[in-house]
Amino acid sequence: MSTLTERRAAAIAAAETDRQVRRLYAVAYAASRTSALMLNPWTSAAGVQHATARTAAARSAATRLLTLPGVAEHEETPYALSFITLAERRVTGPRAEVLAVANAARAAADVEPDETRRYGLRHLENEARNLIDGARYFGLDHGRRTHVLHLQAAAARYGLSTTG
């Protein structure tokens, strides 16, 4: 039989593990909520950058929390980590690529002196934002994925940088 002191120490260790898992959940939920910006077709370049940075910070914090005793072995840890994985998929997926095209086209159109070229850039922006809006309901399946590649090719023809 274990002594009262041993049982108390085990209870304190279990409570600390539960507290750390709750911290992991809080980090994961925050990353998931922030990455939901990628679902909005009007998210700005700053919003995309913010969601990307917060998701990376959440993965880093989760990695540190997993090194604490008992957190990696806790039964709820995989579920909490799934929220961070979802956030990572959102900020690196096709929607992020399309938002990059839309935001680059908007920035270029705002400073473009040529009216015809400005019209083309606005059209490219609207096409990209409409694709994201439709993807909210239908996803970016194979047919839409080819549309993403078309948008990226059009952005390249305009000389737009859609990275970073």
Rank of each mutant, 00 (worst) to 15 (best):
M1V: 07
S2F: 08
L4R: 14
T5P: 00
R7S: 04
A10M: 11
A14Q: 15
A15H: 06
E16K: 09
D18H: 04
Q20N: 09
V21L: 08
V21E: 01
R22I: 02
A26P: 03
V27Q: 08
V27G: 01
S35C: 00
A36Q: 06
M38A: 07
N40V: 12
T43S: 12
A45K: 03
G47W: 06
V48Q: 13
Q49E: 12
A51V: 03
A56F: 01
R59L: 03
A62W: 02
L66H: 03
P69S: 15
A72Q: 11
E73K: 12
E75N: 06
E75V: 12
T77A: 10
Y79Q: 08
A80H: 12
S82V: 13
I84M: 00
I84N: 00
L86T: 09
A87R: 01
E88C: 02
R89G: 14
R90Q: 15
V91M: 05
V91H: 01
V91A: 12
E97S: 14
V98C: 11
V101G: 04
A102V: 06
N103H: 00
N103D: 03
N103L: 02
A105H: 06
A108Q: 14
A109I: 11
A109L: 05
D110A: 14
P113Y: 07
E115Y: 03
T116Q: 10
T116F: 04
T116I: 05
Y119P: 01
G120A: 15
L121Y: 02
H123Y: 06
H123A: 11
H123V: 11
L124P: 02
L124H: 11
E125K: 13
N126Q: 12
R129D: 00
N130R: 03
Y137C: 02
D141Q: 11
H142R: 10
R144I: 01
R144D: 10
H147N: 05
H147E: 13
L149C: 11
L149E: 14
Q152C: 02
A154M: 15
R157Q: 13
Y158A: 15
Y158N: 13
T162D: 06
T163N: 08
T163H: 10
